[in-house]
């Protein structure tokens, strides 16, 4: 259970910065290949999770090009490690995060940013002083979605990093294991309850926070 939390939180935090960057790019950028990037980001949403897991295995497996490179030069190994589970969850949750952030970026009144420019702020300052505070609710919503997706992620995880107790076994894969053995119903039920409680807590926590933010941002 703690492992599942660790995986989900790592996935959420790890995808945060790239998620915001991609969302900004998709919402504001006018460049060749924007449609393509959009499609690639959304792929995990429509592909079967097993396919995503297999693609990850092909890319980040120990003998796969990227995986071997990372292992050799940085000592980072994803395959059959909890970090791999986190990567799988991050990829699966990425489109949800990007969508939520992108919507909030598109809702930002450009004149607020332009006012910042006329008051002496460059693009970087405008982003941190104006845009970022305004899109916080969207980021929060995206984080919750990404976290929830990570907590429930099964197909990509089990395909990419298998189901190793103590290393890559997350809540859903553990429940799955329990249901596969005779007399495991008790354990499965217990974990199911845990899963429900964790998810509700995350939802309520973010709801509370979001309401506070919204009140602050209401024009």
């Amino acid at each position: 259970m703690t492992l599942s939390l660790k995986v989900a939180i790592a996935a959420m935090v790890g995808s945060l910065v790239p998620g915001i960057a991609v969302a900004m790019l998709l919402a504001r950028g006018r460049f060749f290949g924007r449609q393509f990037l959009d499609a690639v980001v959304h792929l995990p949403l429509i592909l079967p999770p097993v396919v995503v897991g297999y693609l990850l295995l092909l890319t980040f497996g120990r003998r796969a090009p990227v995986g071997a490179f990372l292992a050799e030069h940085f000592g980072i190994v994803f395959a059959f490690r909890w970090t791999g589970a986190a990567l799988a969850c991050a990829v699966m949750g990425f489109p949800l995060l990007v969508r939520a952030v992108r919507l909030s970026v598109e809702a930002v009144d450009r004149r607020l940013e332009q006012a910042g420019e006329t008051l002496g702020a460059g693009p970087v300052w405008v982003f941190f002083l104006v845009t970022l505070p305004l899109i916080l609710p969207g980021i929060l919503a995206g984080m919750v979605l990404s976290f929830a997706r990570a907590m429930g992620e099964f197909g990509a995880t089990i395909t990419f990093v298998s189901n190793i107790p103590g290393e890559t076994q997350t809540l859903p894969t553990a429940i799955y294991t329990f249901t596969q053995v005779p007399g495991g119903e008790g354990g499965a039920l217990r974990l199911t309850l845990v899963s429900i409680v964790l998810s509700l807590m995350a939802l309520w926590g973010s709801e509370l926070f979001a309401r506070r933010l919204q009140r602050r941002l209401a024009a």
Partner: peptide, 20 residues
């Protein structure tokens, strides 16, 4: 010259105040 270096200040119809 980018807007921030023009040494101007603009007042918008929508006021463009920062809600936060």
């Amino acid at each position: 010259v980018p807007p921030k270096d023009r040494d101007i200040a603009m007042v918008f119809q929508s006021y463009a105040l920062y809600p936060h």
